[in-house]
């Protein structure tokens, strides 16, 4: 072969390689645990994630067929560009624009979550979708109806056959498909993750903010998931809704006004904040922690270390902390075409 031909061929091959590289983001590679993450808690042994199961779950996730009048899909209140939360909505509007009382939480890194919902009332990811499907203000349907519609659908029986080897649609394989999609919503490509993996470094401000975080936030928002999955009362004022958080789930008085500690990942995409979405900005959140923590029943003792309840932050600490929190935003996650509606 001529040297010149060889070079042309090389360029041609390189061109193909480049093309396929662009498409890699859209290629299913299965569930992979990020190197800096702990072991998962989901029972993968009873529901291994497959390409077909994941794709079926994705289709179901974005399909309003799951709601009573075919108007609301899971993706309506869990928008991919919002890290699968409902940006801009304190509480979400479901079917017939009925309002709930809690903020739609992001769907990310659920394979590591031992409980679901702000109150932890659900202990298995497979059981989670049943709650919004049957909730009067969300999708207001029954599983029986949903499964019947899927069974009579032109495409779904064959998609279930591909995913689970049977075209028989049961609550088990329906919910396991949804779990497979949600399990794949892994956010682990923030700048913070790159720093931890020694691929880049923090700026000076971010580094100082990291120190502030470790001193004043990581008690609850522990790394690398930025939540310890516990339930705590962070001293929000009690509103007329009087949402008692975890109490109705356990009936233990010590659980009154406790809510699950949310992750701090992807805060840029998930405003507003808190269980009822009362704060629209991170500044408002920090204002709460520095000056507005209320002495309500079961207030977490962490807030009672100083002269007044809360966490003191100097102006510099606050600025640096916000710089650090910004390193937890994962733009690859919110733009991941694999997870978007197809």
């Amino acid at each position: 072969m001529h040297r010149k031909h060889f070079i042309i061929l090389f360029i041609f091959v390189a061109g193909i390689a480049a093309c396929s590289k662009d498409e890699i983001a859209d290629v299913f590679t299965g569930f992979q645990k990020p190197s800096n993450f702990p072991n998962t808690v989901y029972h993968f042994e009873t529901n291994p994630v497959t390409k077909e199961g994941f794709e079926l779950g994705r289709k179901l996730f974005y399909d309003p067929i799951l709601s009573a009048n075919n108007t609301i899909s899971c993706g309506n209140c869990h928008i991919p560009t919002g890290s699968f939360s409902h940006p801009g909505h304190s509480v979400s509007h479901g079917i017939h624009d009925r309002l709930g009382k809690r903020n739609s939480p992001p769907i990310m890194n659920l394979a590591w979550s031992p409980t679901f919902m702000w109150d932890g009332g659900i202990f298995d990811l497979d059981l989670q979708p049943v709650a919004p499907i049957t909730n009067h203000v969300e999708m207001d349907d029954t599983l029986v109806n949903v499964l019947n519609r899927l069974r009579n659908h032109a495409e779904y029986p064959s998609l279930f056959k591909k995913a689970f080897g049977t075209s028989e649609i049961s609550s088990n394989n329906f919910l396991k498909a949804l779990s497979q999609f949600m399990l794949m919503c892994v956010s682990s490509e923030s700048k913070y993750d790159s720093v931890i993996r020694n691929q880049t470094v923090f700026s000076s401000s971010e580094q100082q903010g990291y120190a502030v975080f470790r001193q004043k936030c990581s008690e609850c928002h522990s790394e690398p998931l930025f939540t310890d999955h516990s339930f705590r009362n962070n001293g929000l004022s009690i509103t007329s809704v009087n949402d008692m958080g975890r109490y109705p789930v356990t009936l233990n008085d010590t659980d009154k006004y406790r809510f699950k500690v949310p992750s701090l990942r992807n805060l840029a995409y998930t405003a507003p904040y808190m269980h009822d979405g009362r704060f629209f900005t991170l500044d408002a959140v920090l204002d709460h922690y520095t000056g507005s923590v209320q002495l309500t029943p079961n207030l977490d003792p962490f807030f009672l270390q100083g002269a007044q309840p809360g966490i003191p932050l100097s102006a510099t600490e606050r600025e640096n902390l916000l710089a650090f929190l910004a390193t937890l935003n994962d733009k690859n996650f919110v733009r991941n075409t694999l997870l978007a509606e197809h």
């Binding site: 009873t46 298995d124 497979d126 059981l127 049943v130 029954t142 599983l143 029986v144 949903v146 499964l147 049961s170 609550s171 088990n172 329906f174 919910l175 396991k176």
Partner: peptide
């Protein structure tokens, strides 16, 4: 969930 069929099927 696969062990909760028949009379225990939430659907």
């Amino acid at each position: 969930l696969s062990q909760r069929t028949g009379n225990l099927d939430p659907a």
